[in-house]
């Protein structure tokens, strides 16, 4: 390819092919991002736009960062976000892993159809998937009624309920997160599990392992890259989620996305909104680094295997 790349280089086309998307991303992504970082160090003022920078105000104002640790609102919000996202991730894994594994065990023709059924909700509106659960969780819905009857049947009379309070709770947030993000868990897991050599399972069985031992000793260790990938694909967007907690969440215990949005739009405190945003990003960097390291390693292993 060197000849082709060199030609494009000499004629200046290369600079165009790289330069146009590069410039676009710098203008519309990097620059706005740097504005957020700078804004997090600005001072809030009653002007429009509502921030001051230099002049009467300090050039760097770390007050916002201090508030992150002193005002329990932020710490609580971060904690709520991490817990909700963490629980949702674990539940996605517990439900998604057997589903992905099952998908590798069904016949080829079924597999195509079932995979399509996993992806299908993806293509429908995200908002409407959240909305569908609002219909189910409401006090008067058939689903809530069903669960209430079940609850009243198995618990003592004294605990009997009119309906189960599901809407506007963290439970609702987690449930809807699991619902909307489950495909993100299933697909990478399936891709990973599907590539495993079934002969390894057979070898383990041949050597005397029972089905569960085969799973524990052979399948599970090999699927760790898939678990990591799926886990992060669920955890990262879930932690910064705004729509789900706004619609079904507990307003008294907001998640971090809600805080950012409210600081910005309701309180018109741009610096604080930016501070929280930067803090959230810092929290995300850790898991992302793990992910890219795993991915690099997985890809490295693959190319190693492919090359003689």
């Amino acid at each position: 390819m060197t000849a082709l790349a060199q030609w494009f280089h000499r004629r200046g086309w290369r600079d165009l092919i790289i330069g146009i998307p590069y410039a676009w991303l710098i203008l519309f992504f990097l620059l706005p991002f740097l504005i957020v970082v700078a804004m997090s160090l600005a001072t809030r003022t009653p002007t429009a736009p509502p921030f001051g920078y230099g002049g009467d105000n300090p050039l760097i104002n770390p007050a916002g960062y201090a508030r992150l640790f002193t005002d329990s609102l932020y710490l609580r919000a971060f904690l709520t976000s991490l817990i909700n996202a963490g629980v949702a991730t674990v539940l996605c894994l517990l439900l998604g892993y057997p589903m992905a594994l099952a998908l590798t065990r069904v016949s080829k023709s079924w597999r195509t159809i079932l995979l399509m059924l996993v992806i299908l909700p993806f293509w429908t509106s995200f908002l409407l998937r959240v909305y569908a659960w609002m219909g189910l969780m409401g006090r008067n819905s058939w689903f809530n009624g069903l669960l209430t009857d079940l609850w009243n049947l198995i618990t003592p009379q004294a605990w009997a309920l009119q309906s189960i309070p599901m809407m506007n709770t963290n439970f609702a947030v987690v449930l809807v997160m699991v619902y909307t993000y489950l495909p993100f868990m299933i697909l990478p897991l399936y891709a990973n599990l599907e590539r495993l050599d079934p002969a390894l399972d057979e070898a383990a069985m041949d050597l005397g392992s029972r089905p569960f031992q085969v799973f524990r000793d052979v399948t599970l260790p090999q699927s760790i890259p898939g678990i990591i990938a799926g886990g992060l694909l669920v955890f990262i967007p879930a932690a910064g989620e705004l729509v789900i907690p706004s619609l079904v969440g507990d307003a008294a215990a907001p998640m971090i996305g809600r805080i950012i949005s409210d600081e910005f739009a309701q309180a018109r405190d741009w610096p604080m909104a930016s501070t929280v945003a930067v803090a959230l990003l810092v929290l995300m960097v850790g898991p992302t680094m793990i992910y890219s390291r795993f991915q690099a390693r997985a890809e490295g292993a693959e190319t190693d295997g492919a090359k003689p």
């Binding site: 504005i35 736009p49 990262i236 932690a239 996305g257 930016s274």
Partner: peptide, 11 residues
């Protein structure tokens, strides 16, 4: 996170 992309674009 989309919120951050959102507010950064708006600002």
């Amino acid at each position: 996170p989309e919120v951050i992309t959102g507010i950064s674009s708006l600002m």
